[in-house]
Nucleic acid binder design. Structure first.
Length: 287
DNA sequence: ATGCCTGAAGGGTTCAGA
């Protein structure tokens, strides 16, 4: 089962990149952020193209900004748009949608930017993260939180920590909020796989930042322990950031093994087979 | 230019993004 998350920075503008990417990478579950489309417009623009590729869709959008969606061809049940009790700015924004896909509770999130640490928007970001944590904490054992967290978890996740000193995305309260979310038992599966590598998911459009690989890792896939144990590969699809008309974010792609059988008692492996499948040591290069 | 690019809405410019 292949899961991906991608901040597309306008599904409408990204259509010429999104559809070929779906055909090439063939993810089973896709979390999209910044679709920037109302639900009716999303259906009109993408409905047939996605249905033709076998995807069921849970979209939660608004006219101009934000907007999230989950695409799934492995089931899409119990769709929940938004987060109960989440604050607005001032009104509720379309920043989250969750659904159960192939037995996993999948949360697609677009965390508020925060703008500047002294702004009301920053307070909003922290309050929103608190509401997200409440939702996840009350949720399923098998869970994925995928999306644009707008937080770089550690200094290794920005090209130059000094360049971001005093800015959002790296402040201790933001990182503490992320840590509190992870304390529910969520693993950062890309960092787990690439513990000390330079891995970014976002590069500013300006000043040749992508070309110079000056970016941040702010798009995360967080997995509860039973899901994290199934991770076979976790990488950033930098190809999607190249070429004509890219988003400023690259997709994160995670491959999961099949879920172990849950209802038939202990699984006894056949004598000729290894009890545990050997872990591959080679993974697709993220760049 | 203290926002170097991109997108949205709406209108000939301004806001938002991280």
């Amino acid at each position: 089962m292949r899961v991906a998350t991608w901040n597309v920075n306008s599904a409408k503008q990204r259509l010429p990149r999104l559809l070929p990417w779906l055909d090439e990478r063939r993810p089973d579950v896709v979390c999209l952020q910044e679709t920037k489309l109302a639900d009716e417009a999303f259906d009109q623009l993408l409905g047939d193209e996605l249905a033709g590729r076998g995807y069921a869709v849970a979209r939660h959008g608004e006219v101009q900004w934000n907007g999230v969606a989950i695409l799934s061809r492995t089931g899409l049940d119990d769709v929940l748009p938004g987060i109960p009790g989440a604050p607005g700015f001032p009104h509720a924004e379309a920043r989250a949608v969750s659904a159960t896909c192939g037995g996993i509770r999948v949360h697609c999130v677009y965390v508020p930017n925060g703008r500047t640490p002294d702004s009301e928007h920053y307070e909003y970001k922290l309050a929103w993260l608190s509401a997200l944590q409440e939702l996840i904490g009350a949720g399923a054992q098998d869970a994925l939180v995928c999306g644009d967290m707008n937080i770089a978890p550690a200094d290794i996740d920005v090209f130059d920590p000094d360049a971001y000193a005093g800015h959002t995305h790296v402040t201790p309260p933001e990182r503490a909020a992320l840590a509190k979310l992870q304390a529910l038992g969520l693993r950062d599966v890309v960092r787990d796989r690439w513990p000390s590598e330079r891995v970014f998911t976002y590069w500013d459009y300006r000043a040749g930042m992508f070309h110079r690989d000056l970016g941040m890792r702010i798009d995360l896939v967080l997995a509860s322990a039973p899901v994290a144990e199934r991770v076979r590969a976790a990488w950033v699809d930098r190809q999607a950031r190249k070429g004509t008309g890219p988003s400023d974010h690259a997709p994160v792609i995670v491959d999961l093994d099949e879920a172990p059988d849950g209802d038939i008692g202990p699984v006894v492996p056949p004598p000729s087979a290894p009890a545990v499948k050997p872990r591959s040591t080679k993974l697709p290069q993220s760049r």
